[in-house]
Design a protein around this nucleic acid. Sequence first.
RNA 1: CGGGGUGUGGCGCAGUUGGUAGCGCACCGCGUUUGGGACGCGGGGGCCCGCGGUUCGAGUCCGCGCACCCCGACCA
Length: 479
Amino acid sequence: MAEDKLVSRSEDFNEWYNTLVLRADLADYGPVRGTMIIKPYGWTLWENMQQALDRRFKATGHLNAGFPMLIPRSFIEREASHVEGFSPELAVVTVGGGKELEEPLVVRPTSETIIGYAYSKWIKSYRDLPVLINLWNSVVRWELRTKLFLRTQEFWWQEGHTAHATHAEAQAETLQMLDVYLDFARNEAALPAYTGRKSASEKFPGADVTYSLEAVMGDGKALQAATSHNLGQNFARAFDIKYLDRGNELQHCWTTSWGLSTRFIGAIVMAHGDDQGLVLPPRLAPHQAVIVPIYKSEEEQAMVLEACQRVRAMLADAGVRVIADLREGLSPGFKFNDWEMRGVPLRIEIGPKDVAKESVALARRDIPGKAGKSFVPVAGLAAAIIAKLDEIQQNMLARATEFRDANTSHPRDFAGLAAAVVNGFARAWSCGKPECDAAIKEQTKATNRCIPLDQVPGGGPCVYCGEPATEQAYFARAY
RNA sequence: CGGGGUGUGGCGCAGUUGGUAGCGCACCGCGUUUGGGACGCGGGGGCCCGCGGUUCGAGUCCGCGCACCCCGACCA
């Protein structure tokens, strides 16, 4: 329960985030270091995200499936860069049923390998392709330094895994899913993000190409919000995923994988939250509106509560996710703060004056104070609220886009880049040599986030070494 | 794994030169309150991280562990 003011976001962003996640009732710490308990409020937010994504996955032809959590360790070792990337962070099971196991099992850090095992059994002919499967599950990575939602030992996500007959199809799939994520981020989470290709050093272990969404957080740092990988034939070769083509020739498949995790909840917190707490986009918010009754005497209480129930039923019938806060013994002021902490987009106040006027007081979470308040007649309230929720959603996207653009600069030299990445993104010419990225990281703590797909024609001198470059890249400090 | 810090009711902390544990919030009960974080009275709850030592006596002093947090390296 919210009892005090949060530390202000500008004063200590880190502290603000940590306490907000706990106070807004999203999550709690688990008993094992680095683990996270997602509480019902946080999980409901995740469910809303899942539904919005799942709709899009189904619309693009994917089906969900369930795969085992335990994977033979030898599977991980079959793909050279995959084992190199994941070995350091594996949790390994060595004992089962009280007996030492013949072969240790790893708790999945991601499922490419066990998918490879299954696909090699299932796919025989070009007629079997494409295979388009998505998993909703959790994975474990033994992270050394953790932070609620952003990096935990276990996290929940979806991982899509597809197999195709040609490179072109796999590439189209990879980019299609990147677009799905971008659309989800913009239109559901009100979060504009940059997209692009990962540099060689930042790509997924085992992928030919990795694409990512890079979102700008409230402190100007970057958060990788989703990834989509073209795995080429790497896993197909490692796991013998082969098919006979029309000409009766045996071919390796081309596979992809793509994922978005509960980390995205952290992105929503850090991109939209303010000093009062969370600000949730209406399309994803567990409660889109909260009704707070206000009364003194018992007669007023009866009258007000009756009005609250009526309004609640009316809105629920209209499809609004609405809750009435009928807790007794708490002052309205306390409840206002409490629901602001939890980021509910709209507050509906109903007191004796409102009952008398047959209206309610509306307060917008995205516009604090008087400016966000209005009085709306009960007649036609549902339509007004639905319109208002849409307006809030649009406003949040517009504001986040404005913030992103205001915190992105285009430096032409290294000094400019170093200054820009202290609290924002820098888009600059980059020659792409790993040494340049490494030096930039060393000196500024900023990494090459991605190489955007929308390149400008021509070229310029690399922001670090000055040699001719034909592509630009985004640089930022990252979570 | 390196550097720093902290372990005392659920949470946040105080605890003096060693003398047998306290405050705020939360929780429970009763009453008064309620248009921006209400108040009064009463109440419950603690092997002071663990083990060993010094001492008549240890939350406090000394060892050795363990855990967690912050800053780096590594990472969705």
